[in-house]
Design a protein around this nucleic acid. Structure first.
Lengths: 117, 117
DNA sequence: CAGCATCCCATTAGATACTG
DNA sequence: CAGTATCTAATGGGATGCTG
C-alpha cells in the first residue's frame, strides 16, 4: 500500500515539512497517534475512539504507522487474540508535533468546538 | 472542490488534531505555507520552489488555503498580471505548527537530508 | 478479537491545451 | 503571468463477508 500521499519530496528546504506530514496524514493517523499518547490501546479500543473508521482503514493506517516506525504492535498468542498498540520511541518524539496540531486546532478552529462561555 | 481529506471529524478530543491536519495536508499546502513564512510570493515563484507541482494542483491548493483563511491573494490589475500570495494573520498563527513539522522532519527523517558533518 | 480479501465507487492528481 | 478547462490515470476509501 502506498505511502498515503506526499510521495515525492521535491521541494527545497520545505521538504522536511512534507516529509513529516507524510507520516501523519492519512485521515486517521493523527488521531491514532494522539490517542496512543495516552497509553497502550488495543485494536478495538482505538476503533471505539474513532466512530467512523472502518476496520480496513484502521488496519491500514496502523500498518503504515508501524512501517514508519511510529508505533509498535504487540501480538499476544491468546484466544481470543489480543494486540496492543503503543507509540514507539520514534513515535514519542512526534508528541510535540501532535500536540502543536491539537493546541492550534483547539484554539483556532471555530467549528471544532464552541469555545464559548 | 472538496476539503482534501479529513472531512469527518468524529473523533473525541483528537478531533482538533485532524482538524488542523485537514488544513495543511493536501500534498503541497504544508510546503506552500512554509515558503510563505519567508514572505510574499507570486504564483510562479511558488511554482518554481515546487518543481513537481502542476499549475492545476498549485492553483487548487492555493484556493483552498485562501478559502480556509490561511493565505491572502492580492491581484494587481496589470498586464502582465501579477498576483501576490501572503500568509494571513490566521496563517501566521500556524507558523509554530509548520516549524514543528519542519524541525521534526529535519531531525528525524533519515532519507530527507543527510545530516552528516 | 483482530484481522484479511474482494468488489466497487469517489476523489485526487497528472497531462495537455487554451485564455484574459 | 496567472490562470481555466477537459480528459484520464491512480489512489483512497466504504461496504461486506470470511477466518484463525
Amino acid at each position: 500500500m502506498g505511502r498515503t500521499r506526499h510521495d515525492r519530496f521535491d521541494c527545497s528546504p520545505g521538504c522536511a515539512v512534507e516529509a513529516t506530514l507524510s507520516l501523519i496524514d492519512g485521515k486517521w493517523k493523527g488521531v491514532v497517534l494522539y490517542h496512543l499518547m495516552s497509553g497502550t490501546l488495543r485494536f478495538n479500543e482505538i476503533r471505539r475512539k474513532l466512530p467512523n473508521v472502518t476496520q480496513r482503514m484502521l488496519t491500514n493506517q496502523l500498518r503504515e504507522l508501524e512501517a514508519d516506525g511510529l508505533i509498535t504492535r504487540t501480538v499476544f498468542a491468546q484466544v481470543p487474540p489480543r494486540v496492543d498498540y503503543d507509540l514507539s520511541e520514534r513515535g514519542r518524539t512526534l508528541e510535540p508535533v501532535i500536540l502543536a496540531l491539537k493546541v492550534w486546532g483547539d484554539a483556532n478552529m471555530p467549528a471544532t468546538e464552541n469555545a464559548a462561555a
